[in-house]
Amino acid sequence: MEMGKAIWERYKVALGLIILLVLSAIVSPDFVRPTNIQNVVQRISIIGILAIGMTFVILSGGIDLSVGSLLAASACLTAGAIKYYHLPVGIAIMIGLLGGAFFGFLNGIFITKGKMQPFVITLALMTSARGFAFLYTNGQPITLEPTDVPLIINLGLGKIANVIPVQTLIFAVVALLAFLMLRFTTFGRYVYGLGGNEEAVRLSGVNVERIKTLIYTVSGLLAGLGGILMVGFQNGLANANFGLGYELSAIACVVIGGTSLAGGVGGVGNTVIGTLIIGILDNILNLKGVGTYIQEMVRGAIIIFAVYISKRRE
């Protein structure tokens, strides 16, 4: 009995995903077509990458509302470096990644040194970073000629052997790295520790401020990566209005996967499952031609249900 419960606790979210898969396959024969599966895994990748960053933040007991804006800022930084300053694509990508990481670093510094609430600080950065993106681009979209930036286009739209989308591969690599980091490094242990009992971690002599700053920097860096993939996926366009509301989608992926908003409980595997659940849900609702307003209601209902199921025993 005890063991049964333990197994249930461990795998119930995965079970939810399997039930959703089976149900989807039953209601729509189109769902299992290889091209459809390809489409789904491609389109969840950017949100998935943001959600991985968000997992670190939420595990540590924080929240990062700025990722959607950081994504836009990085996309504009990268495209702008190419369009305005004619820098090589490789360097432009570095600028985008570092830009995202820098904004994330600012989040961390304000939260630790300024001793301010993550919610408030990242909300502020959400506004400021988007303002920066609009200022930098003058409110106009930046269009790169796809043939000039094949690397970026390939990152967003390419498929390996015409089967696996490059985006999805990047998502998988990021997820694997994050998993290893959380599972096998001391940094990973501190991340869980901060969410469980920050005071205990501090008392054991760990530099909590540094760990926290690093967590937000990672989240910013991954948002930057998402921004660059987005430029590719959108065929060379960068716009300051990219990623509106993505922070909430990323949080939803993490929470549906079963990671507790209170911190300390959950992991990367949960987030990947949560991301898949959201992606499949959107897909199946579209395939069934469910009206847009009903879709919104259904999505909300599923979130409530999933979070209730994934709640741990007190």
Binding site: D30, R33, N36, R43, D282, N283, N286, L287
Partner: peptide, 9 residues
């Protein structure tokens, strides 16, 4: 994504 889904349909 929507266009892809419509084509799948």
């Amino acid at each position: 994504a929507d266009v892809q889904d419509l084509v799948t349909r």
